[in-house]
Write a protein that binds this DNA or RNA. Structure first.
Lengths: 92, 92
DNA sequence: ACATTAATTAGCCTACAGGCTAAATATTAA
DNA sequence: TTAATATTTAGCCTGTAGGCTAATTAATGT
């Protein structure tokens, strides 16, 4: 799976887009527990969504004791912006 | 399924992204047969991918006799651009 | 009329995404 | 050292995405 596929696939699921938006709105970082609290899903379900996002490079984390903080990797979204650029104007 | 989900899901599959790029590069429109010829997949498989893209509003078509021409709806990609805007700068 | 061409629809089959609960891991508090 | 807290891992189960072939539809050419 290449980078484009990972990122586009990761963003395809509404729960994962919500996770991205939520962390972003909270300033760019949240602990796993804070993220899990926001969602209706069982915690392990959210964990897996987070892992998909991280595998795509859209999130990364730091461990502080037993607390894991996830950060948004905004630059990774450039991959999507770059892809969209192909459609910005008529090709010739 | 809302518009965001439709568009992001449609773009998640590599074959569908390739269809978008291919039509775009060919000037914005291609017949179903021309599209199908480009891909390794059986034609019905490509038909389904096209239908997913059309259902998401990313393509539309016109029928001329037995030939169906598909067109890219570039403006629909703004949905993705708009979504990405949330991450353009730190929120406050 | 009949065959050919363009394309979709029908329907099957398989892999896997994404939900869950229960168990495990690791750190901190009592 | 035992209990509590934070989080992931393991593993199950179900629905559906996405591949295929065969059948259908509809328009065109002979």
């Amino acid at each position: 799976m290449d980078a484009y596929e990972a990122v586009f696939t990761a963003l395809a699921h509404p729960a994962r887009r919500r996770i991205m938006l939520t962390i972003n709105f909270e300033g760019g970082s949240m602990t796993a527990g804070e993220i899990a609290d926001v969602f209706e899903h069982a915690w392990p379900t959210t964990t897996r969504h987070i892992q998909v996002l991280e595998a795509a490079g859209l999130l990364y984390h730091e461990q502080q004791g037993r607390v894991r903080t996830y950060y948004i990797n905004r630059s990774r979204l450039d991959l999507v912006r770059d892809w969209l650029e192909w459609f910005a104007k008529d090709p010739h």
